[in-house]
């Protein structure tokens, strides 16, 4: 665990400096799209636009062709690229509307549960500890369930060893969201997805529950296999 170094994401485009999550939004699709590659991504957040005006780089961007923003890219106060990513992972068969409704209902469930807990809590200190904002709960849950190392299978001398190694930010985020969704889908037939998802998120945010256990198991396994770490460079 002590050998792990975190790499800060090196931002190629200094314009998209809003948050680490805005790097998720590159929109370079492998398939041919309506807009050729030399088109720039749109800057739709008011803060980013204000920054452009400050740096007086707006005139440069105004002369360059720009792609139009997608439907989920809003300048609203509630825009969160992580929430959009989670909705995309929940989505199956391209049913974005359904995926969004499920995630929104899950947020509603989280809110109701937390408000109930808030009202039942007796002292102001306890009340202050309860997070009422579902987006914050989501962020915390994902942060708590992100693994810091991963095991890669490396074959040496006929035996496949599980070798611990570094993990990129992207993969780590992907694994966190995937584990959360897998845990949710192991639900009972009679329980609805939003309810189960809300439960998983709340558990993960408080460092309990299936997903965090899975991450901790992975870390333990990595620790146990640290002898094989040099197999990465043979």
């Amino acid at each position: 665990m002590s050998n792990v170094t975190h790499y800060l994401p090196v931002l190629k485009n200094p314009l998209l400096l809003r948050s680490p999550w805005s790097r998720l939004q590159k929109r370079f699709l492998g398939r041919p799209t309506s807009f050729p590659d030399y088109f720039q991504n749109p800057i739709f957040r008011k803060e980013d636009q204000a920054k452009l005006i400050e740096n007086s780089e707006l005139s440069k961007l105004a002369a360059v062709p720009v792609r139009p923003p997608a439907v989920y890219e809003t300048s609203s106060v509630y825009h969160d690229p992580l929430v959009n990513k989670v909705i995309n992972h929940v989505m199956e068969m391209g049913k974005k509307k359904l995926a969004r409704e499920l995630v929104e209902k899950a947020f509603e469930n989280i809110k109701r549960k937390q408000i109930e807990r808030y009202h039942l809590a007796s002292s102001p200190e306890e009340k202050a500890k309860i997070i009422l904002d579902p987006k914050t709960v989501l962020h915390r849950a994902i942060a708590n369930s992100k693994p810091l190392l991963q095991l890669s299978p490396i074959k040496r001398g006929g035996i496949t060893y599980q070798v611990p190694g570094p993990i990129t930010e992207k993969r780590s985020l992907f694994l966190a969201i995937k584990w959360l969704l897998e845990a949710t889908n192991e639900k009972d037939r009679t329980i609805h997805f939003p309810e189960q998802f809300a439960r998983e998120l709340l558990d993960a945010a408080s460092n309990t529950g299936k997903v965090v256990k899975r991450k901790q198991d992975l870390h333990r396994q990595c620790e146990a296999n640290r002898a094989y770490a040099h197999y990465r460079w043979q």
């Binding site: 609203s76 106060v77 509630y78 809110k111 408000i115 808030y118 009422l132 904002d133």
Partner: peptide
Amino acid sequence: DRLWLRGPPEIETE
């Protein structure tokens, strides 16, 4: 007041 809505005041216009 009932903790159902939170955020900056721009939300109202939105």
